[in-house]
Nucleic acid binder design. Structure first.
Lengths: 216, 216
DNA sequence: AAATAAGTTTAGGCAAACCTAAAAAATATA
DNA sequence: TATATTTTTTAGGTTTGCCTAAACTTATTT
């Protein structure tokens, strides 16, 4: 299993939730910052290896095998993220690039010991659940802030966009996991929201409210 | 800088101590489990990049630039080894393969924070000094056990062979860093030595005594 | 239903890093 | 010194993963 193959499987895993009939080569290429032609090549290879279901022109989906591999990579990624945040004082936005590299290290012992060393965490620093060794994932009940209405209150449990610009924005606004967000007002014309956080009032754009998850 | 380039520089660094006039392509190929022809290609590339001095048929040596890069890789390798041994309970022989992968992770912040997290260690679990950020290495006064004579006593500060079979042997014999070794007797015909360790008497072959370093 | 647009695949190339086999240079030996 | 041996390099090939441009499907308009 090469780095590149692992990245493809991980990406398909993320994207197939929104495209349950098949992830298109264009979408996948965009996500991987690659080109559709390159994607076609790779998914043909993954199909031959028995990791994905691929029908020409119909997109690609993981099969059981591929999903298991993807979940193992995701497990490693999230354990490393936890390590970086909890032990090495990385901030939200600095974590991702390094975890992206660390997730490809091959050693069962390493990941088992890291898990133990971190105290068997169930969620990573972005609030996403860490799959167990068998690939089981805990489902979290969560809503986008944009789905709340004035008067509602939620506790931040994760984000969708993990780009460093968005995470930096959250850092600046002191929004992190566990932060309580109360909806004050919905601006009708642009769907922006006035919210209260730790007593401060704050305006969040629609883009922002769609990318913050809360439980309630 | 690719993984492969980093491995070449690191290998040349190790080998040029024993071949100060130039490391031959055959030696380097052997060390890297590769072929002389592949080595020639790569060192030509490293020469063009200004990292090594290469004279056809005369072998290769690092220049200042290449040495600095090599030392940075070695620094990362040894810090990761320390992490695996001290935090993840890896045994002597399990460490190497994983550190070999981790040393190529690219992130200045990562290595700085790891160093801090480990308490700025000066030596790795094999007793080798960890270069600092500027590439300075502490020289250690050390002798092979084979150089001692009956009556001498030394404290284990490192090993030469880092193959897992040798490290497993040391684990079995409970020889580790700091272990005090007293020479009892030298067997003349095969240069094996009877030594005392923690009260136990033990026979070490010449191969073994040449691969254990002690300070005295 | 035909024409156009959008998305996908195929074809042909490129760079990195490896390989084997043949040629060339350096070294050792008679 | 001439010959044989060993070492090194060159030449040509392979695989992986990427690319662009052209050909082909599928979807959308008119």
């Amino acid at each position: 299993m090469t780095f590149s193959e692992e990245n493809y499987l991980k990406s398909i895993y993320s994207l197939q939730k929104d495209s349950p009939k098949g992830v298109s080569t264009t979408i996948l290429a965009q996500y991987l910052e690659s080109k559709p032609a390159s994607v076609t090549e790779m998914i043909k290879k993954l199909d031959e290896k028995g990791l994905v279901l691929y029908q020409p022109y119909q997109g690609v989906l993981l099969n059981k095998n591929g999903e298991l591999v993807a979940l193992k990579v995701i497990r490693k990624h999230r354990l490393w993220e936890t390590f970086l945040a909890k032990k090495l004082d990385f901030s939200w936005d600095e974590i991702h690039d390094v975890a992206e590299q660390l997730e490809h290290i091959k050693s069962d012992k390493l990941i088992k010991e890291l898990d133990r060393f971190l105290g068997f965490p169930t969620h990573d620093p972005h609030g996403d659940p860490i799959p167990d060794e068998q690939g089981n994932v805990i489902k979290v009940e969560k809503k986008q802030v944009s789905q709340l209405v004035p008067g509602d209150t939620g506790t931040c449990v994760g984000v969708n966009d993990t780009s460093s610009s968005f995470l930096q924005f959250l850092d600046q606004q002191q929004i992190k996991l566990g932060t309580v967000i109360e909806i004050m007002h919905l601006q009708d014309f642009d769907k922006s929201m006035t919210v209260r956080i730790d007593g401060r009032e704050l305006l969040l754009s629609q883009i922002a409210t769609e990318n913050i998850y809360v439980k309630f």
